[in-house]
């Protein structure tokens, strides 16, 4: 398998070596000899069907589940499952759960956000400052005194993200952050995720949205039956039709468009697949005939009007 990072000297934020994990009472392993390395500061999208092991891996990364076999390292240090060891792990890795109602337990947003920082041993004044600062960054200040049950789904999700960010983690794990959100809140959450990456935080997210993963991620990890089917750049993963079929995934729309334009000869075969809609636009506008076609299309309504 081609390892995207093998030729680069990377600093690994996360290293998982041959992890196996089976839930109690289950015969089928949730993680089956799972190995993966994630570079510091990278944006990693985990894709795969339900039950492919994404959430279990995330829980293992936070020390909530302990692998039956194998080891996990954060910043090159293997996990220690002692109280102090787990505190160190959880200080570095924050996990935002898929359903915010599983995470927000406190009566108000302010209280909920203060829970994690106080557990880290922060003083009261410092904790208050951290809560207020994070809320301001995420635009949640007006919601701080609201009871959690009075928030909308999108607001709950943002509050759940704020719960984790206030703890200042180096690695942020988001389990399907856009699940059951409307477009406005999906965009808001994605904006927050983009800002995390800009700050150099390693972001791991599970998603079923191939278009988003293709444009946002540095690396896509495709999982099936607790195993890594493939990890690579979005281009490597999404152009591998066999792999996508195997994982029951569909290629991103931008690639499908690129493929049909290539088939119809509008784009030359040597052209690199675009990484985003913007890149596809650039490829198209770079061609004289396409430019001509566009300008003709723009002229057509005038001509019709004259007729």
């Amino acid at each position: 398998m081609k390892e995207y990072e093998m030729d680069q000297k990377q600093e690994w934020a996360v290293e998982a070596e041959d992890i196996c994990f089976t839930y109690e009472g289950n015969d089928v392993p949730a993680l089956d000899h799972f190995s993966l390395r994630i570079a510091r500061g990278s944006r990693v999208a985990f894709m795969g069907g339900n039950g492919s092991g994404k959430s279990t891996f995330f829980l293992c990364l936070n020390g909530i589940r302990r692998p039956d076999k194998g080891r996990i390292m954060i910043d090159g240090k293997p996990f220690s499952y002692t109280r102090k060891g787990l505190l160190d792990v959880r200080r570095k890795t924050g996990i935002v759960f898929q359903d915010p109602d599983d995470q927000l337990f406190s009566a108000s947003v302010y209280e909920d956000m203060s829970f994690g920082v106080l557990n880290l041993g922060m003083g009261e004044a410092q904790a208050r400052q951290a809560v207020e600062h994070t809320a301001e960054e995420l635009g949640l200040t007006a919601l701080l005194d609201r009871p959690v049950h009075a928030l909308s789904g999108g607001q709950k999700k943002l509050a759940a993200i704020a719960d984790i960010l206030v703890m200042g983690p180096e690695i942020v794990i988001l389990d399907e952050p856009a699940a059951s959100l409307d477009q406005m809140h999906t965009d808001l959450v994605r904006k927050v995720i983009a800002e995390l990456s800009d700050k150099g935080i390693t972001v791991l997210t599970a998603t079923h949205d191939m278009d988003y993963a293709y444009e946002w991620a540095d690396v896509i990890v495709v999982m099936k039956d607790g195993k890594v089917l493939r990890r690579g750049t979005p281009r490597e993963v999404c152009t591998d039709r066999k792999l996508l079929e195997q994982a029951h995934l569909k290629p991103p729309v931008v690639l499908e468009m690129y493929e049909s334009l290539k088939k119809s000869g509008i784009i030359s075969a040597g052209e690199e697949p675009p990484g985003s809609v913007e890149e596809l636009k650039k490829i198209l506008t770079g061609r004289n005939d396409v430019r001509k076609g566009i300008s003709e299309m723009e002229r057509t309504p005038d001509a019709e009007e004259n007729n």
Binding site: L59, N62, I64, L86, L87, R90, R91, G94, I95, F97, D102, Q103, F105, F115, G116, N119, L120, D163, I164, M167
Partner: peptide
């Protein structure tokens, strides 16, 4: 689980 993840 979520509380443990926040060092409960």
């Amino acid at each position: 689980d979520s509380m443990e993840a926040r060092c409960y």
